[in-house]
Design a protein around this nucleic acid. Structure first.
Length: 278
DNA sequence: GCCCAGGGATGCG
DNA sequence: CGCATCCATGGG
């Protein structure tokens, strides 16, 4: 991807593989705000302001190098699309619809917490819970609150989580965070896929689907296919002749089909299916 | 009031 | 193993 950087700005010139609405609204991130002038993106203790112009995007931030990596700018999405196109008509249409999607490289702890909250929940409420969590327990920065550190999270009780709107997942959350004090989260990224899965599934509140989301968005592992209610619909409506409701089997079949491109395919499909613009 | 949302834990056979 | 049930909560 072609981009230029200055001390506090990144200029992205290729709008065919970078669309900020596609990137932020395709379901991989909850911690952002839409303004009239653009989007504010939060990650860990950092933020960036993204503005669209006719022939380029401008990403303004104090942490230029962090967000070059965060937006996966050194990855070639034309190659990825080329490899995915021409297999299924529905996937072709999904890629055409969400052409500007990029898989963000987000913070692993933030993804673990966020996707435990996401279970059997809806996106507006997930966003609210995470915003509440930052505002109450995150370090105050210049004009915003950081995502809470592990240390800060460890001080939060079950009833405090409930007051944030996390509901019945609050008990799981306390146990998960407790467990994480004995896990080197950065080490997870270096592990083989199989070991990442085993380790993540030991965390309370993390099952097959949440595990896949953490690997895809937090560990940058694309060899996963998160299957939720939307992907289950996609699978049965467009990919398989026989109806399958076992999500583990649906996942197996999709990963077998898309291999190391699974994570990319999943995001195009999820965004398109949820858009209601089919 | 009912159904659904980026599901997971638990218990039962 | 596979399967059913329960779990808070807000929106449509």
């Amino acid at each position: 991807m072609q981009y230029e950087k200055t001390k506090n700005k990144i200029i992205v010139k290729d709008k065919t593989c970078f669309n900020i609405a596609h990137i932020l609204e395709c379901g991989q991130i909850f911690n952002y705000e839409k303004l009239e002038s653009g989007y504010i993106v939060f990650s860990k203790d950092k933020m960036a302001m993204v503005k669209e112009f006719d022939h380029y995007y401008e990403i303004e931030t104090k942490d230029v190098n962090y967000f070059i990596n965060f937006f996966d700018l050194d990855n070639n999405y034309n190659e990825i699309k080329r490899a995915l196109l021409g297999r299924y008509d529905f996937l072709d249409r999904a890629i055409n619809f969400g052409y500007g999607i990029r898989i963000l490289k987000q913070d692993a702890l933030e993804m673990i917490v966020s996707f435990i909250i996401s279970a059997n929940n809806n996106i507006p409420r997930i966003k609210n819970s995470i915003r509440n969590l930052c505002n109450k327990y995150g370090e105050k920065k210049d004009g915003y609150f950081a995502f809470p550190t592990l240390k800060a999270l460890q001080q939060i009780s079950e009833s405090e989580f409930k007051s944030l709107g996390i509901g019945y997942r609050s008990c799981q959350m306390v146990k998960a965070i407790q467990y994480l004090s004995n896990v080197d989260i950065e080490e997870l990224k270096k592990m083989p896929t199989k070991e990442q899965e085993e380790e993540l599934l030991r965390i309370c509140g993390v099952g097959p689907k949440v595990k896949d989301c953490i690997m895809l968005f937090g560990l940058s592992n694309k060899e996963v296919f998160p299957v939720d209610t939307w992907i289950e619909k996609v699978y049965n409506n467009y990919f398989s002749k026989e109806r399958q409701t076992n999500r583990v089997r649906i996942r197996e079949n999709l990963v077998k089909e898309f291999g190391s491109l699974s994570g990319y395919a999943q995001q195009y499909l999820f965004y398109f299916e949820r858009s209601g613009d089919k």
